[in-house]
């Protein structure tokens, strides 16, 4: 009880004092997670749309694989990317291990399957509605992909937000590939893990509250945009 109270007070203090170190961590968290969502979206959204519109042998297995990848433990993903990016690994010469870029890659790998699976789900209803009309226009499944992505944009915003939520809450993978280097690769979640292990539970909790506030703010912003735009589109 006392700890919780201390945490809330500390969280307010962190936000109100605009502590530069905390702001830098918040900024990096946002940049890493938003970049990861963007990159994962470039792959996951078209892939999900393609799975929604095409019928090919092995499609069911692809969906099962995708759903399994959704459950990929972040630590495992982090480890794989660590081994790839390590100087002794195949992508070592890029020198990306322990950099924010490595963290973006790890988060993108983690959330791309989530985005693809959720996109498939969000667009398959739309495809059911559009399929015949698009075929009448002479548009095959491949041409339908960008159409569905655009016409499903409001539902996809929710998909992107789910990806962002998962990315920004993720700690296992970014800890491994980023190294939690102060002032360079320390993000909200790894800072929380660090403060927890230093036994400063109120500070850890306060950082957690700040993280939640950010995620809530991003969601509120996106939902407001979505609301305004979808009122327009009907």
């Amino acid at each position: 009880m006392g700890d919780l109270h201390a945490a809330i007070t500390a969280a307010l203090g962190l936000i109100l004092a605009v502590d530069p170190a905390v702001m830098a961590i918040v900024g990096l968290s946002l940049r890493v997670s938003l970049s990861a969502v963007l990159i994962a979206a470039l792959v996951g959204l078209p892939l999900g749309a393609l799975l929604a519109v095409t019928r090919f042998p092995g499609r069911q297995s692809a969906i099962v694989a995708l759903n399994a990848l959704m459950g990929l433990p972040p630590v495992v993903a982090g480890l794989l990317i660590y081994l790839l990016l390590s100087r002794s690994g195949p992508l070592g010469p890029l020198g990306l291990l322990f950099t924010p870029t490595a963290m973006v890659i790890a988060q993108a790998v983690l959330i791309a399957p989530i985005l693809a699976a959720l996109t498939r789900e969000a667009l398959s209803g739309l495809w059911e509605e559009y399929a015949e009309q698009l075929r009448s226009f002479g548009a095959g499944p491949l041409r339908a992909v960008p159409t569905l992505l655009w016409d499903g944009r409001f539902a996809l915003l929710t998909v992107l937000l789910a990806g962002f939520g998962r990315a920004s809450a993720e700690v296992g993978a970014v800890m491994i590939v980023g190294g939690n280097i102060e002032g360079f690769t320390r993000v909200m979640t790894t800072a929380i893990a660090l403060e927890t292990s230093k036994g400063d539970l109120p500070l850890a909790l306060a950082l957690g509250l700040v993280l939640m506030a950010i995620v809530v703010a991003v969601n509120a912003l996106a939902q407001a945009l979505r609301g305004a735009a979808s009122r327009w589109a009907g």
Binding site: R31, L34, S35, L38, I39, G95, T99, P100, T101, V104
Partner: peptide, 12 residues
Amino acid sequence: ILALAAFPTSAQ
């Protein structure tokens, strides 16, 4: 997108 994805690599 580009601004977001580009991280400073100078001072390496």
